[in-house]
Design a protein around this nucleic acid. Structure first.
Lengths: 269, 269
DNA sequence: CGTCAGTTTCCACATCGTGGAAGAAATGCG
DNA sequence: CGCATTTCTTCCACGATGTGGAAACTGACG
């Protein structure tokens, strides 16, 4: 009753439900996400989510941690991933820069890219500093605008797309203690400032700074970031870190400009 | 009308249809598979396949090659793959062996594993010989029993599972010029012989020999293979190649026995 | 042993997907 | 070229299939 759109939608809404669920399953790292949480996050009634997840479970598209009863993505999706090598390998393209950033700062460094209405963690390097921020693992996703890296990605997109995405995500922001309004002004602030910092307390006690790579890599919005505990990322350190990020960003941008078409068909080695 | 099962199946059959389609999309390499072919292979009416694929297209789960009108897996699935790191990294485990095999023979070497009723190409090395067999790319799948590598995987499985799989695949074998009968006797022959050779002409002018790794890696049936043009793989050469494969297989088996739990959580580096 | 959050089953209802058929496009062939 | 053939896309009446509220169940915790 009262789906979301009342207009002549094109068929196969189940596909959308299933993929929403899978996106939520891949949203967080660790021992998996509980049924109830997934259902709520995907905007589905619990029994519906249950039925779909049960079907996905039978096909090995998701797994269930017997201890915590949490769902994670299953081997079938990993297998599909093998066959679905991306046309532009953003990950490989950014890897050297990531290495240098993590080495220079000693903190965790991340690359995120846009994936629909989400930011996706493409890669990560752990620095040498004893207290590491690992709130996000490779493959995790969160709504565009939630968290420093994600916000940097969002802010680098054309304004009309930003509007569309923020509207689409409006409901999801609540779960992160945000609103569409706050995200919109955070985008403004990011653009004015030239880089992004964490919006609110996404993960307590951690702070991040992030910088988008020009207007994307191969048409896909991308951002680099450094995340560390609050105490460590004080104003002075933010300044140095941003300078470092900007240097790497410019280097990557130069590379983009020189190479006619960034390396194609990267497969996953 | 007359689905396949008439019994009180558990819900969400759409999930099965969607995943069948995706499996077929990932079955073959190259510029993508045509709608009609996918529909037939997945056992769905064309309009149904069309609707589902259109929905998947809108969500970036599949892409369409504008030139050939063929479907391939899309970036969303690659992204899911990032988050769905397998518990046992068979690929990494077999990599050194693959390297050695390809180097020693000069031909293409493959690792396949079981994935449901399919064999999945996990990894591949190209040898130095000028004429290379590349019928199969990483991530491609075919029904268990079709092709040397796939047959070796199948034959290494317990007999009751073999029966179940062959029954389930019966309809699909036709599309490869095989029957359940022929596959069953090929399994017998493989077990008697100790290794598998290509069943019929899967890919014209090529021949393969394959050997399963004991009874699997971390519970998953796996096989190694070498594929070359027919002329090259004559009887004498088959003997040498099998000996080489067997040596590698024994080495891997020894490794498995020594390591308590083969490397966990391999992610995809 | 009672409470509660999370999970699973149930089932009457109607929505949503279904697939045959027919209309468009694209492709092949004479 | 223009007709024939294949492939793709849209349409739509039908009813099977998925839906989701409610209720039973499980087991963790106090």
């Amino acid at each position: 009753m009262a789906k979301q759109a009342g207009l002549g939608r094109d068929g196969a809404q189940v596909v959308h439900k299933v993929l929403s669920l899978l996106k939520e399953v891949s949203a967080s790292r660790g021992r998996g996400t509980k049924l109830t949480a997934l259902a709520e996050a995907a905007g589905l009634p619990v029994p519906t989510a249950y039925r779909l997840l049960a079907a996905l479970l039978a096909e090995r598209a998701v797994e269930r941690d017997e201890a915590t009863r949490g769902f994670r993505l299953g081997p079938l999706l990993w297998e599909f991933g093998l066959a679905a090598a991306p046309d532009v390998d953003i990950r490989r393209f950014c890897a050297p820069a990531l290495d240098r950033i993590a080495a220079a700062t000693g903190d965790s460094a991340y690359v995120n890219c846009r994936s629909g209405d989400d930011a996706l963690c493409l890669d990560r390097r752990e620095g040498s500093y004893p207290i590491q921020a690992k709130p996000i693992a490779i493959g995790n996703r969160r709504p565009l605008g939630v968290g420093a890296t994600s916000l940097a990605v969002l802010a680098s997109m054309p304004s009309n797309e930003v509007d569309a995405v923020v509207d689409a995500n409006a409901a999801r922001y609540r779960r992160h203690g945000l609103t569409a309004e706050r995200v919109r002004s955070a985008v403004e602030a990011t653009r004015a400032r030239g880089f992004a910092v964490s919006t609110g307390r996404i993960v307590a006690r951690f702070r991040g700074v992030a910088l988008a790579i020009g207007n994307g890599v191969g048409g896909v919005p991308v951002a680099l970031s450094v995340i560390a505990i609050e105490e460590r990322l004080d104003l002075a350190r933010i300044e140095t870190t941003v300078a470092l990020l900007r240097r790497e960003e410019q280097a990557l941008r130069a590379l983009l400009a020189s190479e006619p078409e960034i390396q194609q068909k990267g497969s996953m080695p």
